[in-house]
């Protein structure tokens, strides 16, 4: 208390300044808002704008210099067979990863929301959050160890005498690879593992919001448990799944570390962007390629919004 009165006496000029701001709240707002807005506006929006700008420039193949004349050549090059297959491969992987994530996340979230006691729920919650906050690269690396030819999964299959079965799966078209860590299947498992928590959390939140009275009403009105699940619970969980799918889909589209470390050597969008800006120094083409995930996400978000994903975030 003593210190408070002391400061009051000694800082009458501060007091005047305080009154000044109190009577002019818009000035205070300006003072608070301008620094973060300047930072994000200049550095972030500025960069995004420069990305858009760059995508309309072109690299001179002979001089290696960027020609600053607007052209849509880069965008036309996106439709070449090679680039189109990169885009389709990435979008396809994102779709599969999203579906598998939803299939694994749903029972877990459902168990958490409806059956787990308070202790058990806290445990599950930590189990979902822990990987989310562990190092991304470390977690990808873990799967490189597990999926390797001489690694744990191949070892377990061999011990169980199922080595032949695993080889058969790996010889199937599309999956084809000499081991899990060099096949699409390995890439997919790693993607699912890395992004799964982003699916679990919104689904769990959506299921948590389903009022118990609604479920009771459904069974009172004669619905069997299966029917209640299909006609009451599932429709109410859809917005949560849609919200989760935004993350799994978008994150898979933009990732380039996972397919670089685990999988066949065929490139994904992220790797293409990285290689264009790095090895070939073609930043304009990299910029045009980076527009692809943005465009796909814009369409995806429009669909997700219709499914009510934004209310479930």
């Amino acid at each position: 208390m003593a210190s408070l009165t002391e400061t009051t006496r000694s800082s009458s000029s501060l007091g005047r300044l305080s009154t000044y701001f109190y009577t002019r709240p818009s000035l205070l707002l300006l003072l608070l808002l301008v620094p973060p807005l300047l930072w994000l506006g200049i550095i972030y929006l500025g960069s995004l704008f420069s990305l858009l700008l760059q995508s309309f420039f072109q690299l001179d193949d002979f001089t290696g210099q960027v020609i600053m004349q607007p052209t849509i050549d880069n965008y036309l090059r996106l439709f070449s067979t090679t680039n189109l297959s990169i885009i389709l491969r990435t979008a396809g992987m994102a779709a599969i990863v999203t579906v598998i994530s939803a299939l694994i996340a749903f029972p877990l979230a459902y168990y958490m929301a409806r059956y787990a006691g308070s202790r058990m729920k806290a445990l599950f919650y930590v189990a979902v959050m822990l990987p989310l906050w562990s190092n991304y690269l470390v977690r990808v690396y873990a799967w490189k160890l597990i999926l390797a030819k001489e690694g744990a999964i191949h070892w377990i299959f061999n011990q169980l005498g199922l080595g032949g079965f695993l080889d058969w799966i790996l010889s199937l078209p599309v999956i084809e690879g000499s081991s899990l860590s060099t096949s699409y299947l390995g890439t997919m498992i790693t993607f699912v593992y890395i992004w799964l928590p982003y699916m679990i959390l919104p689904v769990q939140a959506a299921l948590e919001r389903v009022p118990r009275s609604l479920i009771e009403a459904s069974s009172d009105l004669g619905a069997k448990p299966g029917e209640t699940f299909r006609k009451v619970i599932l429709p109410l969980a859809i917005p949560g799944v849609a919200a989760g799918s935004i993350f799994t889909f978008s994150l898979t589209l933009g990732d380039y570390i996972i397919p670089q470390l685990i999988g066949s050597s065929r490139p994904f969008i992220g790797q293409a962007v990285y290689q264009f800006q790095g090895t070939s120094g073609d930043i304009p083409m990299a910029a045009a390629f980076a527009m692809v995930p943005i465009a796909i996400m814009a369409v995806y978000l429009a669909i997700a919004k219709r499914l009510g994903a934004f209310d479930a975030l």
Binding site: G254, Y256, I269, G270, Q277, I283, A286, A290
Partner: peptide
């Protein structure tokens, strides 16, 4: 936005 977009920007 995906990290790669922020990065390349």
């Amino acid at each position: 936005l995906p990290g790669i977009v922020t990065g390349i920007s």
